[in-house]
Design a protein around this nucleic acid. Structure first.
Length: 515
RNA sequence: GGCCUCGUCGCCAAGUGGUAAGGCAACGGUUUGCAAAACCGUUAUUCCCCGGUUCGAAUCCGGGCGAGGCCUCCA
């Protein structure tokens, strides 16, 4: 099956219109940088980063742009409140945003254009729209006239007439129609402003995306993405003004990701249940957080479960994240097993990064997994289905490991070992398409490679195993010395456990890990 | 009031016409000195309810109930 993508514009899945090898342009609406990123801000970037990863895997040349809105009302208000400048606030919050992206392995974004760096371009677009009769200046503002755009409302399926009926907003004095929206706003004293043909002012919300998408990616982009909440008014308006300006289709495909929810409620500042990325990362790894987002098909809402941080005694993390963290440990353990079996670092394991039609597998089951994973991804980037395949692979690989006695060098089956390595390599290949398997394990972070840490751990393990060996020599089960010795070995294991270190007594020897 | 989603095991979730993936949790077993990890087994004859279409429906249609989103600057 070839790649199919759901297009909001046509409300159906369509065959992807590009052939592998061709360039693909992708534009996704980014954040307004006025406060630290919360986990909801990461959903879109993770999803579209994964879209790029899969397209790249298939051989497309993807250019991915995410804009930074660094001037608007929220920024101005926040800067005033906190006694700082819009510029300083925007720079600080942009740095926070980049840091969050990095922690979640969102590495595919090629350009982060800032609104304030494209003001001249926006003025050009607005001028063009006025010249063509789509926009009109009004007392220092400039508005887009929705009645001039014959297919206004096509993205959301809105009838422009109806928009006025249920509208919560009064027609402002300067607008001709209630649906008209600002392309340019005249500024009040003290606000950031730029010179324009209509006086001192600043751009409207939607115009920056039109201008930056067109200037960086061309008049028609392949994929335009964003959260479902942006569909209206932002994307509808962006679409209207862009196509009015260029007289060409703005985006071939519109993709909208579902939003985060908490059980039956929503995450909102007004409720006080907003979870910042930085706070979430104190309790779960970035990789587990990314996995959590990808566990669900992107168009569905992502459920964090019922959670109210204001209730005393409630967990510090929503149940959905807690559960994702535990699920994810299965991935980590498989790589730990790989390291025990091969004596190699899993981080150094090289897996293919491009699809290879000639690829063959010694174990036919891996070819099946590969196919099933690809079928899910081809079906509108169904990462949730793909994750399911990954879990089935873990189970299969563990069985191969068990049956082949791979952790016992004297009895290990060479054929099984080769199959295991082949499978883990595919596992890594598929996981990397989802942008997973990038973090250094907690054990390594603590310093498993560190001479002193490792030396101390080996010493503790050796001493404990000496006690275990002594205890095992005593055959009489009720012997008090045997009991005492085992009490000591268990105490060591328990106390290390309290420090976050788990000891595992395996046939081939005792290993330790953090977590 | 208008537009639009969604309702699959205790929780999360894939499946959108061919007879219910997977994860978490739980329980039993193998293994282990005991654990941990892993493995085996059990846990939805049924997909909110009621009708209809069909040889066949979780999937399509109609009606109901329930939850949610958007309706002019929320990712």
């Amino acid at each position: 099956m070839a790649l199919q993508v759901y297009n909001t514009l046509t409300r159906k899945k369509e065959p992807f219109h590009r052939k592998p090898g061709e360039p693909v342009t992708m534009y996704v609406c980014g954040p307004t940088v006025y406060k630290p990123s919360h986990i909801g801000h990461m959903v879109g970037p993770v999803i579209f980063d994964t879209v790029k990863r899969y397209l790249t895997y298939l051989g497309y040349q993807v250019t991915f742009v995410v804009n930074i809105t660094d001037v608007d009302d929220k920024l101005i208000n926040k800067a005033n409140e906190t006694k700082t400048t819009v510029k300083e606030l925007a720079e600080r919050m942009t740095a926070d945003y980049h840091d969050c992206l990095k922690k979640l392995n969102v590495t595919g974004i090629d350009h982060f254009p800032k609104a304030t760096e494209h003001i001249d371009g926006m003025i050009g677009v607005i001028n063009g729209l006025i010249d063509k009769g789509y926009a009109y200046p009004a007392e220092g503002d400039v508005y887009f006239n929705v009645t001039q755009d014959k297919d206004y409302g096509k993205l959301c399926g809105f009838d422009p007439e109806q928009l006025e009926v249920g509208s919560r907003i009064e027609v402002s004095g300067r607008k001709k129609n209630s649906g008209d929206f600002a392309l340019w706003k005249c500024s009040k004293p003290g606000e950031p402003s730029w010179k324009s043909p209509w006086g001192e002012g600043r751009p409207g919300w939607h115009i920056e995306c039109t201008c930056m998408a067109i200037s960086l990616l061309g008049k028609t982009i392949d994929i335009h993405g964003g959260g479902l909440d942006l569909k209206f008014p932002h994307h509808e308006n962006e679409l209207a003004q862009s196509e009015s300006f260029t007289e060409q289709p703005f985006a071939k495909i519109w993709m909208h990701n579902g939003l985060l929810k908490m059980g039956s409620g929503k995450m909102a500042g007004s409720i006080g249940n907003v979870l910042n990325v930085a706070d979430a990362l104190k309790h779960v790894g970035g990789e587990a957080l990314r996995f959590f987002v990808l566990n669900t098909q992107y168009r569905s809402p992502i459920d964090l479960g019922e959670w109210d941080p204001r209730e005393p005694g409630n967990p510090v993390i929503p149940p959905g994240l807690e559960s994702a963290k535990k699920s994810y440990e299965g991935f980590i353990r498989l790589f730990e097993r790989y390291e025990r079996i091969t004596g190699l670092k899993s981080a150094a394991l090289q897996a293919p990064t491009k699809v290879n039609p000639e690829r063959t597998f010694v174990e036919p089951v891996f070819a099946e997994y590969m196919t099933r994973f690809r079928e899910h991804m081809d079906d509108d980037f169904n990462t949730g289905g793909g994750v399911g395949v990954l879990f089935e692979m873990i189970s299969t690989l563990n069985k191969i490991g068990d049956a082949g006695k791979l952790e016992d060098p004297s009895r290990a089956d060479a054929k099984a070992k080769a199959a295991f390595i082949e499978g883990v390599t595919l596992f890594k290949e598929l996981g990397q398409i989802l942008g997973l398997f990038y973090e250094t394990s907690k054990t390594d972070q603590l310093g498993a490679d560190d001479k002193i840490v490792n030396g101390v751990m080996q010493l503790v393990i050796e001493l404990r195993n000496n006690l275990r060996a002594e205890a095992k020599k005593i055959t009489e089960k009720t012997d008090p010395t045997k009991k005492m010795l085992f009490n000591q070995t268990d105490l060591i294991r328990q106390r290390l456990g309290e420090l976050g270190i788990t000891l595992e007594d395996r046939p081939a020897g005792t290993t330790w890990r953090v977590g």
